[in-house]
């Protein structure tokens, strides 16, 4: 039996979360296939076939798959599912959108946000926003899993030489239509892929003050994040949110500025290697998880930090 992985990409390049998912797959079985479904996605196919540990790349390149809508992509996956013991996708918004449909159509469960493979039928995933860690065993004939990237170190993006197989099925999605997309344009790394993140909380006071973080982010090549409190207050858009209801990150360095450290935020960042907290309230719970805590007014400390880097 083999493992099928749904590659994460935007028709132009293969996204790093795919490499973490391949890492999880190689712990299950040695025969790992990557499905690239998209439109005019040849570069992605090239990149996919180089990924270490991938034995075969399945290519469904057709205009009907341009926006990777869940309705038709899930049907395509179900059509090719026989012969696979496991079907995996990164736990991104794309993977989370599509894979549960696959599981339902196959009449099996889905285990979401897997962070550890114990054995081919036993997996670990956080529940209650990471406040509890659950181990599940499944006897489903096909095991459908989404993989949280922070749980697995990525495999190398090169060194592989997978064979390719073209899939000719063109399944239309007639009741779901793409209208538009507004992607935040930024030179900064994506939150979930960044090795350094600086996040602001309610203590930032307003959205304008987030500019203070940009100076530090520029010097460190960091992504900018935010707590739910900052998002709820309307300072910044929701896609910056780190936490239970936002993104889960685990960078080498996480700098929390003006963030009190609500359980909901900690759930999204507590696996970071080094955590720095800057907060003027020395009782803030964030200091209980911070490797380095600085009790200071952020409006003094952040500009000073920028200068000293």
């Amino acid at each position: 039996m083999s493992v099928l992985i749904i590659a994460e990409h935007d028709n132009k390049s293969l996204k790093p979360a795919t490499l973490n998912t391949v890492a999880a797959a190689t712990q299950i079985d040695a025969d790992v296939h990557l499905l690239v479904v998209g439109s005019e996605c040849q570069t992605v196919v090239e990149q996919a076939s180089q990924v270490a540990g991938v034995t075969k790349v399945l290519v469904a390149d057709n205009a009907v798959y341009e926006h990777q809508l869940a309705e038709n992509v899930s049907k395509l996956i179900v059509e090719i599912a026989s012969g696979y013991s496991h079907i995996l996708a990164p736990a991104t918004t794309t993977g989370k959108n599509t894979l549960p449909r696959v599981a339902a159509l196959l009449d099996v469960a889905q285990l979401s946000d897997v962070i550890k493979v114990v054995s081919p039928d036993t997996f670990v995933r956080p529940i209650y926003a990471g406040n509890a860690i659950a181990t599940f065993k499944t006897t489903d004939t096909v095991k459908v899993l989404t993989i949280r990237s922070t749980g697995f170190d990525p495999v190398a993006s090169d060194g592989g030489n997978a064979e390719r197989e073209v899939l000719s099925q063109a399944i239309a999605s007639d009741r779901s239509r793409f209208v538009k997309e507004q992607l935040a344009e930024s030179d900064r790394p994506e939150l979930t892929a960044a090795s350094v993140i600086i996040s602001g909380g309610r203590g930032m006071g307003n959205g304008e003050n987030f500019k203070l973080l940009e100076g530090v982010a520029d010097k460190l090549g960091a992504a900018i994040g935010a707590s739910r409190a900052a998002v709820d207050a309307g300072f910044v858009p929701n896609d910056l949110q780190v936490g239970q209801t936002g993104k889960t990150v685990a960078p080498d360095l996480y700098i929390a500025v003006g963030i009190s450290g609500a359980i909901q935020h900690l759930a999204g960042m507590k696996d970071s290697k080094i955590i720095v907290a800057i907060n003027k309230d020395e009782e803030a719970p964030i200091f209980q998880v911070a490797d380095y805590g600085l009790v200071a007014d952020l409006f003094d400390a952040v500009p000073e930090l920028e200068k000293s880097l």
Binding site: N131, A132, I133, K137, T138, I275, Y292
Partner: peptide
């Protein structure tokens, strides 16, 4: 369902670190 729970455990605790006195010390 064919899925059963093997165990539910508390997450690994993160040990708190130290307080630094200044930005210079932090850097």
């Amino acid at each position: 369902s064919n899925v059963s729970i093997v165990s539910v455990t508390p997450p690994p605790q993160r040990a708190g670190g130290i307080k630094v006195g200044s930005v210079a010390e932090l850097v």
